[in-house]
Design a binder for these strands. Sequence first.
DNA 1: TGCACGATAATCT
DNA 2: GATTATCGTGCAA
Length: 198
Amino acid sequence: MIKRLRRRDLPIDTVKLARFLIGKMLVHDLRGHRTSGRIVETEAYPVGDAAGHAFRGETKRNASLYLARGHAYVYFIYGMYCCLNVSSERAGVGAGVLIRALEPTEGIDLMKERRGSSPVRDLARGPGRLALAMAITLRDDGVDLCADPSLWLGVSDSENRTVVAATTRIGLSREQNRPWRFYERGSRFVSGPALPKR
DNA sequence: TGCACGATAATCT
DNA sequence: GATTATCGTGCAA
């Protein structure tokens, strides 16, 4: 069983939310089929961060970052992939948390179809892969993850204890030394270069 | 295991 | 015209 997260459950702070989301569930119910996974890796892009898409102010593309915390901001990158973020502050303030990797839990066969049959470990290891496996597209930009019947955040009642660790973020050309990437220590489903075992 | 490289298009300068 | 919060492949060690 997965219980929905309400907006009041989410911390009103980008870095705190990024840490909070580790171990929580992302669920997509689409045409009667569910795919879901445990979030094992996130990155915070707080207010004033030069690497954040909202750094230079609100535009048509990044408008969803300015919605109340818990809304989806989906953007298209490298001409090929979509990435999912969760808006993370009060309405009118632009910031978000990038969801970088999931441990697949339900709908694994469907994820394999969407991804072109890859090992379970690689289905949602990385933001572009995650969006493909979960069938998240630009149409999901702006969705309220605390209210939408299809795409939502939750907590599993069989949630096991999660040890969260922090490192620097991936793929940036600015603000590279900020410790704003969070992941579940020991998880095989985390993207990026190999990490210390414990 | 670790690099270099190309694909490919929206957004911004 | 440059840049980009990525990924798969190919090749070297």
